[in-house]
Design a protein around this nucleic acid. Structure first.
Lengths: 91, 91
DNA sequence: TATATATTTAGATAATTGACTAAATATATA
DNA sequence: TATATATTTAGTCAATTATCTAAATATATA
Protein backbone atom coordinates (compact mmCIF):
# COMPACT_ATOMS: atom_id res chain seq x y z
CA UNK A 1 0.00 0.00 0.00
CA UNK A 2 2.87 2.36 0.70
CA UNK A 3 4.27 1.91 -2.78
CA UNK A 4 0.87 2.74 -4.18
CA UNK A 5 0.49 5.97 -2.25
CA UNK A 6 4.04 7.02 -3.01
CA UNK A 7 3.44 6.36 -6.68
CA UNK A 8 0.40 8.64 -6.60
CA UNK A 9 2.29 11.41 -4.84
CA UNK A 10 3.76 12.90 -7.98
CA UNK A 11 1.99 15.17 -10.48
CA UNK A 12 3.70 13.66 -13.51
CA UNK A 13 2.61 10.19 -12.50
CA UNK A 14 -0.95 11.31 -11.87
CA UNK A 15 -0.95 12.91 -15.31
CA UNK A 16 0.22 9.63 -16.80
CA UNK A 17 -2.69 7.96 -15.05
CA UNK A 18 -5.05 10.54 -16.53
CA UNK A 19 -3.66 9.87 -20.01
CA UNK A 20 -4.05 6.13 -19.62
CA UNK A 21 -7.60 6.65 -18.50
CA UNK A 22 -8.36 7.84 -22.05
CA UNK A 23 -6.60 5.01 -23.86
CA UNK A 24 -3.73 2.55 -23.59
CA UNK A 25 -0.48 4.07 -24.79
CA UNK A 26 3.11 3.17 -25.51
CA UNK A 27 5.92 4.61 -23.41
CA UNK A 28 6.84 6.83 -26.34
CA UNK A 29 3.28 8.14 -26.74
CA UNK A 30 3.23 8.99 -23.07
CA UNK A 31 6.64 10.67 -23.17
CA UNK A 32 5.46 12.97 -25.96
CA UNK A 33 2.99 14.56 -23.57
CA UNK A 34 5.75 15.78 -21.27
CA UNK A 35 8.81 17.97 -21.40
CA UNK A 36 10.97 15.49 -19.57
CA UNK A 37 13.31 12.88 -20.99
CA UNK A 38 12.19 9.40 -21.98
CA UNK A 39 14.34 7.73 -19.35
CA UNK A 40 12.61 9.82 -16.71
CA UNK A 41 9.21 8.80 -18.03
CA UNK A 42 10.38 5.22 -18.08
CA UNK A 43 11.33 5.58 -14.45
CA UNK A 44 7.87 6.90 -13.57
CA UNK A 45 6.24 4.09 -15.52
CA UNK A 46 8.33 1.63 -13.59
CA UNK A 47 7.22 3.06 -10.25
CA UNK A 48 3.59 2.93 -11.35
CA UNK A 49 4.09 -0.67 -12.42
CA UNK A 50 5.74 -1.63 -9.12
CA UNK A 51 2.77 -0.05 -7.38
CA UNK A 52 0.47 -2.18 -9.48
CA UNK A 53 -1.26 0.92 -10.79
CA UNK A 54 -0.51 0.21 -14.42
CA UNK A 55 0.05 -2.91 -16.48
CA UNK A 56 2.39 -3.36 -19.42
CA UNK A 57 2.20 -5.56 -22.43
CA UNK A 58 4.78 -5.80 -25.15
CA UNK A 59 3.59 -5.76 -28.77
CA UNK A 60 6.56 -6.10 -31.01
CA UNK A 61 8.87 -3.16 -30.49
CA UNK A 62 6.27 -1.35 -28.45
CA UNK A 63 5.24 -1.69 -24.86
CA UNK A 64 1.67 -0.69 -24.21
CA UNK A 65 0.68 0.60 -20.82
CA UNK A 66 -2.82 0.46 -19.34
CA UNK A 67 -4.51 1.23 -16.04
CA UNK A 68 -5.11 -1.51 -13.51
CA UNK A 69 -8.57 -0.74 -12.19
CA UNK A 70 -8.24 -3.23 -9.35
CA UNK A 71 -5.87 -0.99 -7.44
CA UNK A 72 -8.25 1.94 -7.60
CA UNK A 73 -10.98 -0.19 -6.12
CA UNK A 74 -8.66 -0.95 -3.21
CA UNK A 75 -7.81 2.70 -2.74
CA UNK A 76 -11.45 3.67 -2.73
CA UNK A 77 -12.04 1.05 -0.05
CA UNK A 78 -9.18 2.49 1.98
CA UNK A 79 -10.74 5.93 1.93
CA UNK A 80 -14.26 4.66 2.47
CA UNK A 81 -13.41 2.91 5.71
CA UNK A 82 -11.87 6.12 7.03
CA UNK A 83 -14.93 8.21 6.86
CA UNK A 84 -17.74 5.68 7.17
CA UNK A 85 -19.00 7.24 3.98
CA UNK A 86 -22.31 6.21 2.62
CA UNK A 87 -23.00 4.07 5.68
CA UNK A 88 -25.60 4.15 8.43
CA UNK A 89 -25.69 7.59 10.09
CA UNK A 90 -26.59 6.20 13.48
CA UNK A 91 -23.84 7.73 15.72
CA UNK B 1 -4.47 18.08 -4.61
CA UNK B 2 -0.74 17.47 -4.82
CA UNK B 3 -0.26 18.44 -1.19
CA UNK B 4 -2.95 15.97 -0.25
CA UNK B 5 -1.40 13.05 -2.11
CA UNK B 6 2.02 13.89 -0.80
CA UNK B 7 0.68 14.01 2.72
CA UNK B 8 -0.78 10.54 2.29
CA UNK B 9 2.46 9.14 0.90
CA UNK B 10 4.01 8.47 4.28
CA UNK B 11 3.29 5.51 6.57
CA UNK B 12 3.57 7.55 9.76
CA UNK B 13 1.03 10.03 8.50
CA UNK B 14 -1.35 7.31 7.39
CA UNK B 15 -1.04 5.77 10.84
CA UNK B 16 -1.88 9.14 12.39
CA UNK B 17 -4.95 9.21 10.17
CA UNK B 18 -5.88 5.74 11.37
CA UNK B 19 -5.53 6.85 15.00
CA UNK B 20 -7.68 9.91 14.44
CA UNK B 21 -10.28 7.75 12.83
CA UNK B 22 -10.87 6.17 16.26
CA UNK B 23 -11.03 9.42 18.23
CA UNK B 24 -9.75 12.99 18.33
CA UNK B 25 -6.38 13.21 20.04
CA UNK B 26 -3.87 15.75 21.26
CA UNK B 27 -0.45 16.00 19.61
CA UNK B 28 1.02 14.37 22.72
CA UNK B 29 -1.42 11.46 22.61
CA UNK B 30 -0.52 10.88 19.00
CA UNK B 31 3.22 11.11 19.66
CA UNK B 32 2.96 8.39 22.31
CA UNK B 33 1.98 5.92 19.61
CA UNK B 34 5.28 6.34 17.79
CA UNK B 35 8.96 5.97 18.41
CA UNK B 36 9.84 9.27 16.84
CA UNK B 37 10.34 12.62 18.51
CA UNK B 38 7.52 15.04 19.25
CA UNK B 39 8.90 17.69 16.90
CA UNK B 40 8.82 15.13 14.10
CA UNK B 41 5.22 14.27 14.89
CA UNK B 42 4.44 17.95 15.01
CA UNK B 43 5.94 18.28 11.55
CA UNK B 44 3.78 15.45 10.22
CA UNK B 45 0.70 16.99 11.82
CA UNK B 46 1.53 20.25 10.14
CA UNK B 47 1.78 18.61 6.72
CA UNK B 48 -1.54 16.86 7.27
CA UNK B 49 -3.05 20.18 8.30
CA UNK B 50 -1.66 21.97 5.24
CA UNK B 51 -3.17 19.21 3.13
CA UNK B 52 -6.50 19.83 4.80
CA UNK B 53 -6.62 16.22 5.96
CA UNK B 54 -6.85 17.06 9.64
CA UNK B 55 -8.20 19.94 11.68
CA UNK B 56 -6.84 21.33 14.92
CA UNK B 57 -8.53 23.01 17.81
CA UNK B 58 -6.81 24.34 20.89
CA UNK B 59 -8.31 23.53 24.29
CA UNK B 60 -6.24 25.22 26.96
CA UNK B 61 -2.73 23.82 26.84
CA UNK B 62 -3.78 21.08 24.49
CA UNK B 63 -4.35 21.04 20.78
CA UNK B 64 -6.81 18.46 19.62
CA UNK B 65 -6.54 17.00 16.17
CA UNK B 66 -9.37 15.44 14.19
CA UNK B 67 -9.99 14.11 10.70
CA UNK B 68 -11.51 16.30 8.02
CA UNK B 69 -13.90 13.97 6.24
CA UNK B 70 -14.46 16.42 3.39
CA UNK B 71 -11.07 15.73 1.90
CA UNK B 72 -11.68 12.01 1.79
CA UNK B 73 -14.86 12.58 -0.15
CA UNK B 74 -12.84 14.52 -2.70
CA UNK B 75 -10.23 11.78 -2.92
CA UNK B 76 -12.88 9.15 -3.44
CA UNK B 77 -14.29 11.25 -6.26
CA UNK B 78 -10.83 11.49 -7.80
CA UNK B 79 -10.49 7.73 -7.87
CA UNK B 80 -14.04 7.12 -8.96
CA UNK B 81 -13.71 9.19 -12.11
CA UNK B 82 -10.62 7.22 -13.07
CA UNK B 83 -12.24 3.87 -13.23
CA UNK B 84 -15.87 4.65 -13.99
CA UNK B 85 -16.55 2.56 -10.91
CA UNK B 86 -20.06 1.73 -9.99
CA UNK B 87 -21.34 3.40 -13.15
CA UNK B 88 -23.19 2.23 -16.21
CA UNK B 89 -21.41 -0.76 -17.74
CA UNK B 90 -22.35 0.27 -21.26
CA UNK B 91 -19.51 -0.19 -23.76
C1' DT C 1 5.63 36.44 38.56
C1' DA C 2 7.84 32.01 38.48
C1' DT C 3 7.39 27.30 37.10
C1' DA C 4 5.57 23.31 34.78
C1' DT C 5 3.45 21.16 30.77
C1' DA C 6 2.17 20.98 25.74
C1' DT C 7 3.45 22.02 21.38
C1' DT C 8 5.87 24.31 17.71
C1' DT C 9 9.80 26.55 15.36
C1' DA C 10 14.65 26.65 13.91
C1' DG C 11 18.59 24.68 12.19
C1' DA C 12 21.39 20.67 10.92
C1' DT C 13 21.97 16.24 8.60
C1' DA C 14 21.22 11.79 6.28
C1' DA C 15 18.16 9.41 3.13
C1' DT C 16 15.08 9.59 -0.73
C1' DT C 17 13.63 11.22 -5.09
C1' DG C 18 13.28 13.21 -9.83
C1' DA C 19 15.85 14.69 -13.38
C1' DC C 20 19.61 14.28 -16.71
C1' DT C 21 23.08 11.91 -20.21
C1' DA C 22 25.20 7.82 -21.87
C1' DA C 23 25.02 3.13 -22.63
C1' DA C 24 22.58 -1.27 -22.89
C1' DT C 25 18.77 -4.32 -24.38
C1' DA C 26 14.86 -5.91 -27.28
C1' DT C 27 12.60 -6.12 -31.56
C1' DA C 28 11.94 -5.45 -36.61
C1' DT C 29 13.63 -5.51 -41.06
C1' DA C 30 16.81 -4.98 -44.98
C1' DT D 1 24.25 -9.84 -39.81
C1' DA D 2 23.91 -4.87 -39.75
C1' DT D 3 20.99 -1.04 -38.80
C1' DA D 4 17.07 1.51 -37.06
C1' DT D 5 13.60 2.26 -33.53
C1' DA D 6 11.59 1.70 -28.78
C1' DT D 7 12.51 1.34 -24.24
C1' DT D 8 15.14 0.48 -20.10
C1' DT D 9 19.26 0.40 -17.08
C1' DA D 10 23.27 2.69 -14.95
C1' DG D 11 25.40 6.39 -12.87
C1' DT D 12 25.37 11.16 -11.34
C1' DC D 13 23.57 15.28 -9.16
C1' DA D 14 20.44 18.75 -7.11
C1' DA D 15 16.16 19.23 -4.60
C1' DT D 16 13.11 17.45 -1.22
C1' DT D 17 12.02 15.11 2.96
C1' DA D 18 12.14 12.83 7.62
C1' DT D 19 14.50 12.94 11.46
C1' DC D 20 17.02 14.83 15.39
C1' DT D 21 18.33 18.31 19.31
C1' DA D 22 17.88 22.82 21.19
C1' DA D 23 15.26 26.74 21.78
C1' DA D 24 10.96 29.33 21.56
C1' DT D 25 5.97 30.01 22.39
C1' DA D 26 1.44 29.27 24.64
C1' DT D 27 -1.24 28.11 28.49
C1' DA D 28 -2.23 26.85 33.39
C1' DT D 29 -1.44 27.39 38.05
C1' DA D 30 1.04 28.12 42.45
Amino acid sequence: MNETFKALADPTRRQIIALLKERDMTAGDIAEHFNISKPSISHHLNLLKQANIILDQRQGQFIYYSLNATVFQELISWFMQLGNFGGKEGD
